[in-house]
């Protein structure tokens, strides 16, 4: 059952390792912010990739999702999945607006 593994005590090294990773990524993201002449979009991609990475580590190790039952996975996943739905569908509108042709649609 889920509950059994959740009350399992994990070794300290798990948390320490996670902390070092987080610190390394923090340095990385700040450093990436100071690289000169990075195109704006690339900066965003780098920053968000590192942020997602950090968040994943926190969710998996600190929040113990990695060791949790299906239900915790389901709930943790649902939030981010629905967020994705919201972002994808709303941005789809903005992205596709300029696609509409100006000279009339081909018959």
């Amino acid at each position: 059952m889920a509950g059994h593994s959740e009350s399992h005590v994990h070794p300290v090294s798990l948390y320490t390792r996670t902390l070092w990773w987080l610190m390394a990524l923090l340095v990385l993201t700040v450093a990436a912010g100071f690289i000169p002449n990075v195109p704006n979009w690339l900066g965003v991609v780098i920053a968000l990739t590192i942020a997602v990475w950090k968040a994943t580590i926190v969710i998996m190790n600190f929040m113990h999702v990695r060791f949790s039952g299906k239900l915790a996975w389901l709930f943790a996943g649902a939030g981010f999945f629905w967020l994705l739905i919201m972002l994808a569908f709303a941005f789809a509108d903005y992205v596709s607006r300029p696609w509409e042709p100006f000279h009339g649609w081909p018959e």
Binding site: E100, H103, G104, W105
Partner: peptide
């Protein structure tokens, strides 16, 4: 819908 909203000439 496209008839009334899509660009025509």
């Amino acid at each position: 819908y496209a008839d009334i909203y899509a660009p025509r000439e």
